[in-house]
């Protein structure tokens, strides 16, 4: 079998991530795919600390940190600066958490996407403000425990559908990805690299301390998320949706939930409600794909 994942490591060891951090495995793969001719922009998020303490940096490519709500536009500004200086080849990648994407950063992201600024925007979604100590975000799923949605009153609202929002901006490329499917992950970043305009990649990013799960289960939870259709893998290229992994038999969402302490308080009726929501979303996705094929 041909190895499709580049062997060269751009991200080095010595970073400050928690054991089993999904966002760090994701950065490793993303940089392998994009290569060294890349500039990374990081707003306030876990990765503001993961990269290391001054004067150290683990990334191996230039990185600029920026305020919480400004990842997308800072990336656009860098791209404009590079073009002004005659550099049209370097990729600029904004790398933000769900707080910096779904919540405080959505205005700048929407602005960049509407202008179709030539950037790759990645949201590593660990479904809460994990860096500040596990507070709910609009990416936190229904029923989940966080420190601001305690077990007696877990999150009542469903997760915001960020991909639909980005899709409504009619940008050239949108993809979902997870480190449990590294070939698919790398292929998507390589494809994004070849496209001009705003490219949005939504990464499923397990957080062992925040999700109250075992650190060795990051890949396992990610794989079950795809197989249970909690987090389907798909791409939207020029508006056309294609599902990348279609589980022949969808795994029960219980298998996904039981590995994570943040869901341990859920009652049977809650789980049924979650399963129903997943089924509905999956059917919608299939319908949308079919419509695009037709």
């Amino acid at each position: 079998m041909r190895l499709t994942i580049p062997e060269e490591e751009v991200l080095s060891s010595g970073h400050l991530a928690c054991p089993g951090c999904g966002a760090t495995l994701a950065m490793r793969l993303a940089l392998k795919a994009l290569g060294r001719d890349t500039i990374v922009v990081i707003p306030a998020c876990c990765w503001s600390t993961i990269d290391g303490v001054f004067p150290n940096s683990a990334l191996g490519v230039p990185v600029m940190h920026i305020a919480f709500e400004a990842a997308a536009i800072a990336a656009s500004g860098i791209k404009a600066g590079l073009i002004a200086k005659g550099n049209t080849h370097t990729q600029v990648m904004a790398w933000a958490g769900d707080g910096g994407t779904f919540d405080i950063g959505i205005q700048a992201l929407s602005g960049a996407a509407e202008r179709n600024d030539d950037i790759i925007y990645v949201c590593y979604d660990n479904e809460a403000y994990q860096n500040t100590g596990i507070q709910r975000s609009s990416a936190t799923p229904y029923g989940a425990w966080t420190t601001t949605t305690p077990r007696k009153h877990p999150k009542q609202e469903p997760k915001k559908n960020i991909v639909d929002i980005m899709s409504a901006h009619r940008i050239p490329y949108i993809a979902t990805a997870t480190i449990a499917y590294p070939e698919d992950f790398v292929r998507k970043f390589k494809k994004a690299r070849e496209i001009k305009g705003t490219r949005f990649i939504h990464i499923f990013s397990p957080c062992p301390p925040g999700w109250k799960m075992k650190e060795q289960d990051t890949v396992k939870v990610s794989r079950i998320a795809v197989k249970s259709c909690v987090f389907p893998l798909f791409e939207i290229e020029d508006g056309k949706l294609k599902i990348n992994i279609k589980p022949s038999r969808r795994q029960d969402v219980r298998d996904y939930l039981k590995l994570q302490g943040r869901f341990s308080h859920l009652k049977e009726e809650d789980i049924k409600r979650i399963q129903k929501e997943i089924d509905k979303n999956w059917q919608n996705l299939l319908k949308r794909e079919e419509a695009h094929e037709g």
Partner: peptide, 25 residues
């Protein structure tokens, strides 16, 4: 390069990115 941003916060953030890339903003 003229970026017609969606807020002043973004205007300054774009200038920060551009200047950090070595351009006059």
């Amino acid at each position: 390069q003229f970026i017609k941003v969606e807020s002043e916060h973004s205007a300054m953030s774009a200038c920060i990115g551009a200047a950090q890339a070595g351009a006059r903003a």
